[in-house]
Design a binder for these strands. Sequence first.
DNA 1: CGGAAAATTAGAATGGTTCTTATTTTGATC
DNA 2: GATCAAAATAAGAACCATTCTAATTTTCCG
Lengths: 139, 139
Amino acid sequence: MTTQGIQNRETTIPEEINGLRMTRQRQEVYRFLMGERTHPTANEVFMRIKEALPNVSLATVYNCLEALVQHKIIRQVNFDREPSRYCPNLDEHGHFHDETTGTIHDVKFKPGINLTDILDLPPNTVIKDIEITLRGQLA
Amino acid sequence: MTTQGIQNRETTIPEEINGLRMTRQRQEVYRFLMGERTHPTANEVFMRIKEALPNVSLATVYNCLEALVQHKIIRQVNFDREPSRYCPNLDEHGHFHDETTGTIHDVKFKPGINLTDILDLPPNTVIKDIEITLRGQLA
DNA sequence: CGGAAAATTAGAATGGTTCTTATTTTGATC
DNA sequence: GATCAAAATAAGAACCATTCTAATTTTCCG
């Protein structure tokens, strides 16, 4: 029980990821995100994991999401000033926001592309994070 | 006086841009943005144009900014969940957010680069807007 | 087991932005 | 120029995603 992770529903989640202890609440948040492609908001996560943890609070969901983001287990994605969304895909990728349906799709870069190659950056720039967001429609 | 625009301080701003009537408040907002490279927030715009228009209200600044954005006279730029910033540069470009100083620099694309070429987009996608944001430091 | 540290909870507080309502300004028409 | 309707502005209230606070619970470790 101390060395093999905690079994829960379908998915097994280790007791610790990237140095972050995976409490029950963090597990539920993380498991839900892993099974979703929809980039849910904090509130959507909250409503969903309440099914498994009826006493969970929204503050805890925010705490969990922040912890997961800081330990680079998930990513936080912002579209304009809309509520933040959360994404379990850690590969470098962008997001396409379909205006007609409101859905968000991950967008990969074509192989062999180094993003900083195409940007005219000031010299001696250390890039820690790149965010690419596209808005439009699927015709 | 009806055909030649309104003279004010150093800069002349036409009575109408992209179909938007340039009221005194909109002029001040726009003129200030044009003279700044700092991508000011609404509140920074507000504090600054109060010098010229002491009775201006923050709501009006927001109204003006929104009108200018919608008529594609300026751009609204968001960094994570920080207050929106406003940018008079309409060329397609990204933004580099220097974490050490807090300053924001426009980033051009290298010539001949078509952004959609390097992205693996779903077929039949109509892109209306692209936003590229970089975070890091000037070493 | 016992105490310290970490995590969680509930609700209050925050802060950027939007909304509401009243007032003022503008533009069109005479 | 006077008049009226529509647009813009002002002031402050309201909104809402997020963060903070304080109290409680859980976990870790000797």
